[in-house]
Amino acid sequence: MEIARNDKIVTAREIGVVGCQRCTKVWPLGTKRCTRCGAQIVSRDHKALQRVWAWWIVGLICYIPANLYPMLQTRTLVSVQQDTIIGGVITLINHGSFGIALVIFLASVMIPVGKFLAIAFLALAAQRGTTSPSKQRMGLYEIVEYIGRWSMIDVFVVAILSSLVQLNALAAVNPGPAALFFGLSVIFTMLSAQSFDARLIWDAERS
């Protein structure tokens, strides 16, 4: 890729144009809509931060019941067991399946919590400016975008188990309310991350 001017990076805004974020086509500043792909064009989407925070808050609200209610209800001949997310991890550790416990712990606790913190940090950095290097924040943003979907794994496991383990009197697994809240929380945080305008990451460094 040849660059516009050797080493110095020039941004579209500096030369009075705006790029379509969907199809990368270049338009004069002030163009409202890209006629190639139909996307709305904004040079810097500052309203995006409000959307980020709105989804972020809804996601966080859903994450609370997701941890309080049971995720999974296991009924066997002798007992009925209700497991929350953390409870499920502890049960797995007690059974000695450390690998799976780790997968669930990563997907259901570490990734969501890390995501809330990361998105909040990125949004705050874009709002208030920061000294942390843009490259690092961009890396963080890419990780958040990439890894966020994997939190769904626990919801899928619940859906799989509750359809599979239906052995009449012998054993049955049913989903708990937490599965719904957790799924919603993952969806909302994904939307929050998608709302973020990555270009703000690079502006914060300059100003």
Binding site: I9, T11, V18, G19, C20, T24, S134, M138, A198
Partner: peptide, 8 residues
């Protein structure tokens, strides 16, 4: 234009 950092 880079959609992620606005470099042209």
């Amino acid at each position: 234009v880079c959609p992620n950092c606005d470099a042209i």
